[in-house]
Write a protein that binds this DNA or RNA. Structure first.
Lengths: 189, 189
DNA sequence: TCACCTTGCCTAAGGCACTTAGGTAAATGC
DNA sequence: GCATTTACCTAAGTGCCTTAGGCAAGGTGA
């Protein structure tokens, strides 16, 4: 029998694509085995199992997203940087809903720390250098912006804004305005 | 054989409790059958299946949460109202992580509209009456605050703020300050 | 009171996913 | 050319979801 050429990388890539098509939680070892025209147990030579596979997809997505974010921030500051990063997240979430859902997976702390998670926090901190915030307030602001981005995209992907006006794009733009305004007028303790 | 006294209500209640203990996606028809000391297929007389069960848990949680929110808003306005509602969500999410996760489940539009979902939007709108915003900006603000609440709680529950300082409570308080400030100084178009 | 019907629970059975153990054949390296 | 590694296989056990069909307990009407 000829070899199918399965590698961890191809598996993870195919898993990520599958997630984008049918949803992250429909990504299954079995589905991938079918796709590679291979029996299910064969995949256990390449990934440790279902959870490992998902974890790797999450790490891939986090990495891709951090790369895009870093590229978008180059040469931008202040509101332009904020909007650019927001749009990177939003465009990514809409173009790759499965990968984006993967980034929301709960990773164990060691794995998370070894992946691109910290880079994301770093990107947000970089944006905040354009605003005048104390060290502590920077942390609060990172958490606020991260929460708002993630919350908005999660609600938008869930269809929460689908059947009401104004459309989601308008709210998104105004929310960027609002966050910028908030950062420029950050309330004193 | 004696009857176990299974009803849809008890099932859903037990399912919600189980979700809080072991996580919403560990809630399974099988686990509930074990808990009621009944064979799995017996439950199909009471709920239509796994998805139906989860949906009902989600609706229960949304309902409980809307009740708590409405109670917290009574007699409060402005920042007090904003903080009170935020705390209701946050306390609920921390006390009932499984139920809270259930509220994030994607429901089909008809079910969502029939449940307590709209009441939640109404609660946010009620808060915004204490601030001077145009009709359209109210919608944007509802989406912003909803996103921030949901995003923050989701990150917090995922342990995202666990091993860093300042602690999550401080950020939460400051974020309430920031949102209040933002609503009082909402940027013009 | 008794026959009847509804209803709550059962067994049987099929499907799909995950995982481990152990075998075989293809590729690789000496 | 032979040994080793590697990629894939079959077999087998577990768990969950779901449908179909049966039986008996509890309430209902004559």
């Amino acid at each position: 029998m000829s070899r199918a050429g399965v590698t961890p990388e191809r598996l993870v890539r195919a898993g990520a694509d599958l997630a984008d098509e049918v949803g992250f939680d429909q990504v299954t070892v079995s589905a991938l085995a079918r796709q590679f025209d291979v029996k299910v147990p064969s995949l256990y030579a390449h990934v440790e199992g279902s959870r490992d596979l998902r974890t790797r997809i999450a790490l891939l997505a986090l990495d891709e997203l951090a790369d895009l974010g870093a590229a978008a921030l180059a040469g931008r500051a202040g509101k332009a940087a904020l909007s650019a990063l927001g749009d990177v997240y939003r465009d990514y979430a809409r173009a790759h809903p499965g990968r984006y859902a993967a980034t929301r997976m709960r990773l164990d702390p060691a794995t998370a720390a070894a992946g691109a998670g910290p880079r994301h926090a770093e990107l947000l901190r970089a944006i905040l250098r354009g605003y005048q915030l104390s060290e502590t307030d920077q942390t609060h602001a990172v958490r606020l912006i991260g929460s708002t981005f993630h919350g908005y995209l999660s609600l938008e992907l869930a269809g929460g804004f689908d059947h009401s006006s104004p459309d989601s794009q308008q709210s998104w733009t105004r929310i960027m305005d609002a966050l910028d305004s908030l950062l420029r007028n950050w309330p004193a303790q």
